[in-house]
Design a protein around this nucleic acid. Structure first.
Lengths: 340, 340
DNA sequence: GTAGTGTGTGGAAGCGCTTGCAGTTGTGAG
DNA sequence: CTCACAACTGCAAGCGCTTCCACACACTAC
């Protein structure tokens, strides 16, 4: 294997100068820099990252911890973060927690502690005290996305606010019989998020003097499949049907639409449905939603961390509120007169 | 930071013995092993992976290159590989190629060459000669999933065979007017796969003496959105409609079902639809499909590579055909008598 | 008895880089 | 002309481990 030594020899420079030339740090004359680059290119030389990391303490690697790779929000964050990291010359080490508690435990107590990452992005994880401790024990900058992370910087959206905005959109169309599909609050990977969105919904309803019917608040697990089942129950069993459903995520809105179709309900004539996310399928389904730019959140997290890395690994805990955008499509409309 | 030295001191052993005790390699008496473990635990010591890697040449890290994190197949492979790696104590470095050619290029010419990974899994990538060269230049075992990868081991399914099986399922129900939604053959990230499935379809049709109508073979990009648009055209413009659609992937089958509903077509009364994959949404959509166990393919790739790593990084190029399974749900049925 | 084999341990030489330090040269100011 | 200071360069000391080697003991086999 060719090493930096070979490059130095070929370029007629010292190893130290080649290192500086290639990394761009320190003073190197333009001619030396050029010679070093040329020699490296000719030899097809690429720095060994392990040696660099060991010597410098910088790994050029960011850890990304997600609860799942299947849910849309997470894969969108991965996509945004991945592209931003690639551009910056960083690697992305993915920790997919999954459902297995043993996996979850080993990620926190082994993997992350191995000094393999310069920084960590934790997405929508409801962490235990011990896990937070372990994260901080790495002494690396951390950014949380999608929920609070004590002691770390976070990127979040105004969940209560957009839930109200969504509800108000439905109310503004004239709906009063509005159901809400919320995430399970005991589902430990999902923060207070479902609760926050739900209270936004309830507040908007309350402000509009609309009753919130307990039987019209149903719980699902944020997946299309789960909400499909939940929505079937909602639409089947209620003595009276809502005219609109506000789902706490696009995937749950899509599940609702699929369920509604099973009952022969037309969207939006018989039922208006909206969600939150900005899911790719939104266009196909004609889904009205509040786009939260998940890719952008991933990219922002990366840029925040890169800033911290260049700042001596110091990251002041701070909250950034990411902008959102109401996208009106065809799944919401004025309720049919005389609708049941 | 506590290092292995501190552990050695505390345990009253040499650094060498502690290293052996912790890694499990070499001869260490049970008592020494226990003392080393205890000392490490008390100090909260975790090996520095960069130092280990530099010294040993093993990174305990596997690179996974995917075209996208959004398509179901890829995220299922990620999930399967991720869990298997976690279990083995390996990290997963994700390279999401995406659509940006510059990103693609840097992954192959920079990232993968940095000696950061012990092995590489390449998923459904149609690679150029140069890219294959660069992969092999790493001198690391490589496994390809979802298509041929010259010089590397591959895990694949019998695409032609299952396409025939799927088509025969429809033929067996009595369909003769069968359309096929295939992937774009020029879409450079997807191998010959669409072509292979398509020829399986054609062969089955031919064997059954059913005409293959060119206008009933439409092309999409493997996404729900893309196939939705393609299916709309198929169902709208044909002077005569097919009674069944065989889509080359579940996502395209789902897009087809959504499009069919827009035309008021009932599934399966007016139109039978089936796909290939084993997508999570299959149950909700009642989709008949051929399950290809993508998670299992990811896990198998990992196990293959771990075997090679333990075998001195030597991996004999070999092809493994992964089993598939026909799953009949409610999206396919006997064609309606007198159907147009 | 000696040789041979296997186990257990420590010393020390790296793995391939980065970077502090010191030395050399060039430049503008005093 | 000298001095201060900056730009450039090389030497060499690590970074924190792994592993080769040598050595000290057991044993077993002749």
């Amino acid at each position: 294997m060719t090493g930096i030594k070979d490059v130095a020899e070929r370029a007629g420079l010292s190893v130290a100068t080649v290192s500086r030339a290639l990394s761009g740090k320190g003073h190197v004359s333009p001619s030396s820099r050029e010679r070093a680059r040329a020699a490296a290119a000719e030899l097809g030389f690429v720095l060994s990252y392990h040696a660099s990391s060991l010597a410098s303490g910088r790994t050029h690697n960011v850890g990304l911890v997600v609860p799942s790779v299947h849910r849309w929000f997470f894969s969108a964050v991965i996509e945004g973060a991945s592209a931003a990291l690639l551009e910056a010359g960083y690697d992305l080490t993915l920790y997919n927690i999954g459902e297995n508690p043993a996996h979850r435990h080993s990620v926190f107590s082994d993997f992350l502690l191995r000094k393999r990452v310069d920084a960590v992005i934790a997405v929508s994880l409801e962490l235990s005290e011990a896990e937070i401790q372990q994260l901080h024990a790495m002494h690396r900058p951390i950014v949380g996305i999608g929920g609070p992370l004590p002691g770390a910087s976070t990127i979040r959206i105004n969940d209560a606010g957009i839930a109200m905005q969504a509800t108000n959109h439905l109310l503004g169309l004239g709906h009063t019989k509005i159901a809400h599909i919320t995430g399970s609050e005991t589902y430990d990977q999902d923060f207070q998020l479902p609760g926050t969105r739900r209270s936004g919904f309830e507040k908007a309803m309350h402000d509009a003097d609309c009753p919130v019917r307990p039987e019209w608040i149903v719980t699902a697990d944020f997946t299309i499949e789960g909400s499909y089942a939940a929505a079937r129950q909602l639409l089947a069993s209620a003595p009276e049907r809502p005219t609109a459903v506000f789902a706490a995520s696009d995937e749950m809105a899509i599940g609702t639409i699929l369920a509604a179709r099973d009952f022969g309900l037309r969207i939006p004539e018989d039922l208006s449905v909206m969600g939150i996310d900005g899911h790719d399928l939104g266009t196909v389904m004609g889904l009205t939603t509040i786009d939260q730019d998940a890719k952008g959140q991933g990219a922002l997290a990366v840029h925040t961390l890169l800033g911290a890395i260049n700042n001596g690994l110091v990251l002041e805990p701070a909250d950034a509120e990411h902008p959102t955008r109401l996208v009106v499509r065809t799944s919401t409309a004025v309720p049919k007169v005389g609708a049941v």
